[in-house]
Simulated assay, not measured.
Amino acid sequence: MSTSPRRRPGRPTGSDGSARAAIASAARRQFSAHGFDGPSLRGIAVEAGVDPSLVKHHFGDKQRLFLTVVDLPVDYEVLLPRLLDGPDSGIGARLASTVAGLFSDEETRSRLLGLLRAASSHAEAAAVLRERITDGLLEPLAASLGRDEPRLRAAMVMSQVVGMAVARHIVELEPLAEADAEEVARLLAPVLQHYLTADLFAGAAPTVAKP
């Protein structure tokens, strides 16, 4: 009587590069659409067409998977000098154009939106957003300009970028959602310029001390 050979313990079947890529693609799409809490490892495996054990084999737990697939394809060591290459008076336009370009790329936009959705409800994702964008790029950019309050300036720039992204790509607020990327960049540029180089509190109402 013949019997089926027992599978020996070891690497899961299908544990190759194509399976890893399929899992990453499915996870990126689901995190982008549903944030951090919505997707399950099993659901991601089903979409990727692989055994759920492969998700853990390649990425470990859900948090590691998220942190891997939302990694942004941006080299800050290259991008920062490019942004600083020119007069300070044009820094807002250069940054706005860069932001618009990132959101115009489908894959990059998917990763950014997944991170934004997750950060709104999950502390770990919010920490990643701060580290990779604010701490990794915007604060060094503001500090390189030699102005006061670089951390506050970076935070204000981030508030504008996040607000634009949510309104344009998540809420799909019209007519912003259908506006041309170059038009969005032109509208965003003077605001970013102000937060990066101007007197932050110029024109602000003075604080009145309570009696």
Results as ranks from 00 to 15, higher is better:
57 H>W: 15
66 F>K: 08
120 S>A: 15
96 A>C: 06
167 A>R: 15
46 V>A: 04
21 A>I: 06
148 D>S: 09
134 T>K: 11
1 M>G: 14
139 E>M: 11
111 R>K: 15
53 S>G: 14
169 H>S: 07
99 V>E: 02
22 A>V: 03
103 F>P: 05
35 G>F: 01
121 S>R: 14
162 V>Q: 13
92 G>H: 02
44 I>H: 02
104 S>M: 04
17 G>L: 14
169 H>A: 05
48 A>E: 03
122 H>C: 11
69 V>R: 03
110 S>L: 13
4 S>G: 00
65 L>A: 05
145 L>K: 11
95 L>H: 00
32 S>H: 00
61 D>G: 15
159 S>Q: 13
134 T>G: 07
161 V>N: 05
125 A>M: 08
174 E>A: 02
179 A>V: 10
166 V>T: 14
104 S>I: 03
119 A>V: 10
103 F>A: 00
6 R>L: 07
101 G>T: 04
73 P>V: 02
76 Y>I: 01
50 V>Y: 10
9 P>M: 06
136 G>F: 05
66 F>N: 06
19 A>L: 09
26 A>S: 15
130 R>C: 00
55 V>F: 03
11 R>S: 12
187 L>D: 09
196 L>S: 06
85 D>A: 15
10 G>Y: 13
92 G>N: 01
9 P>F: 08
166 V>K: 12
93 A>V: 07
121 S>K: 11
104 S>P: 05
86 G>E: 10
82 R>T: 13
3 T>S: 11
63 Q>P: 06
16 D>E: 12
162 V>L: 13
146 G>T: 09
126 A>P: 04
174 E>H: 02
204 A>P: 00
143 A>L: 15
24 A>W: 13
191 V>E: 12
53 S>T: 14
154 A>Y: 02
171 V>K: 02
72 L>D: 03
28 R>W: 04
188 L>W: 05
25 S>M: 13
45 A>H: 00
63 Q>I: 14
146 G>L: 06
36 F>C: 05
145 L>I: 13
91 I>Q: 03
198 A>F: 03
2 S>I: 12
136 G>A: 12
53 S>V: 15
97 S>N: 14
161 V>M: 08
146 G>S: 08
69 V>Q: 05
208 V>T: 12
177 A>K: 05
106 E>C: 04
32 S>L: 02
